[in-house]
Simulated assay, not measured.
Amino acid sequence: MRKLRGLLALTMVSVLIGVAGCGAAKTAETNAPKDAPKQVVIGFSQVTLDSPFYVSLMDAAKAEAEAKGAKLVYVDAQNNIEKQNKDIQDLITKGINVLILNPSNPTAVAPSLAAAKQANIPVVTVDRPTDGKVATFVGRDNKKMGELAGKEAVLLLGGEGKAKGKIIELQGDAGGKVMMDRRDGFHLAVDKEPGIKVIQGPYCDYTRSKAVKAFQDLLQANPDVNLVYAHNDDMSLGALQVLEQNQLAGKVKIVGVDGLMEAIKAIPTGKYDATVLNDPQLLGKTVVDTALGVLDGKTYDAFIDAGTTLINKDNAAQYINDKLTFAASK
């Protein structure tokens, strides 16, 4: 009998504890905030991460998204438009709120733009524009950058009307808008000089290793080269590597684009002559802020110019910073 009474008491205690637990759970549910804002998810389709410039741009974008309380999900197209279109479709399926796009091809990315439009997802392009309509493009005037490089090349070879010499040009990616602008802008300046001859090298996809291989052949065929111009500093530094191997560093002028810190540090040594600023940190921060602004209903001009300038022996010291991979805008 005593055992039975003990069991009944124990059962009643268990029931009371269970009821109390349910009440606590309901209270917690009741006190939970209703309509809590969902975290904004930014999708970022990057053309490639096989480049220090694009790695720096991506790192800056991630840091800014985190600072603004958003989540950034990125994918690497690896310079492959088919992969990029597939990647973007996957991002849309996962439920992103806005898409940041650095297109590997300005025209062939059209299916992705159409898919984003169908899903009511705004698109902001960065560094490279598209042929299709987007909310805005955050980048720089690459034709102006090429022209700045061209004017400096003319100056290094004797000045306007007096410039003489042979230039080897290392090109970016075949058919790329940035490549064409940096090429065309450069030629706006140098083609005015009858004493300058330009040898256009192969497309090296903005990578140092490809530039090294290409320039080895170009130097052998053109030992009388006076100046090297590459569409980015990474390729120019590849050319410098070959010149050093042939005891020609400092004897052949070098001009690049992007403001890579390694290149800027070489300017005071006389082995490198000039680069054109292309701050990826500012691009990454600006494009994330712009994407969030578009989500908030803000409107922007079709092109947001992040600005540029020439860096040479006169101002290189102002931009040297051991903590940065690329020079920061002033």
Results as ranks from 00 to 15, higher is better:
4 L>N: 10
208 R>Y: 02
86 K>T: 15
133 K>P: 01
113 L>V: 11
139 G>R: 01
57 L>A: 07
12 M>V: 15
275 T>D: 03
205 D>Y: 02
196 I>Y: 02
204 C>D: 08
324 L>G: 11
285 K>Q: 15
242 V>K: 07
179 M>N: 15
109 V>F: 06
177 K>H: 05
46 Q>D: 10
321 N>A: 10
77 A>S: 12
112 S>F: 05
110 A>K: 14
317 A>W: 10
218 L>E: 02
163 A>K: 03
1 M>F: 12
154 V>R: 01
180 M>V: 14
16 L>A: 14
279 D>G: 04
7 L>D: 05
201 G>W: 02
107 T>E: 15
242 V>M: 10
307 G>C: 11
252 V>Q: 01
312 N>K: 12
80 N>K: 12
65 A>K: 12
73 V>P: 04
42 I>W: 02
277 L>A: 03
239 A>S: 09
174 A>H: 06
180 M>A: 13
313 K>F: 12
168 I>M: 03
210 K>W: 04
214 A>D: 01
145 M>P: 01
221 A>Y: 06
218 L>C: 02
171 Q>E: 10
233 D>N: 07
15 V>N: 01
6 G>R: 15
141 D>V: 08
32 A>W: 06
251 K>G: 05
120 N>I: 06
226 N>A: 03
98 V>P: 00
192 K>T: 11
127 D>W: 01
45 S>A: 14
248 L>F: 03
239 A>C: 07
80 N>T: 13
133 K>R: 11
262 E>Y: 05
136 T>F: 00
102 N>R: 04
56 S>E: 12
25 A>W: 07
147 E>K: 15
33 P>L: 06
272 Y>I: 06
211 A>V: 05
93 T>M: 10
329 S>H: 13
8 L>D: 04
234 D>P: 02
246 N>K: 14
159 G>M: 12
291 A>L: 05
265 K>S: 11
219 L>V: 08
255 V>N: 03
84 Q>R: 11
243 L>Y: 01
23 G>M: 07
205 D>W: 00
179 M>I: 03
190 V>M: 04
67 A>Y: 07
25 A>I: 12
249 A>H: 07
109 V>I: 15
183 R>T: 15
214 A>N: 02
274 A>Q: 05
308 T>E: 01
92 I>S: 02
145 M>V: 12
77 A>R: 04
180 M>E: 12
42 I>P: 01
208 R>G: 03
42 I>A: 06
312 N>G: 04
189 A>Y: 03
221 A>N: 13
330 K>F: 14
103 P>W: 05
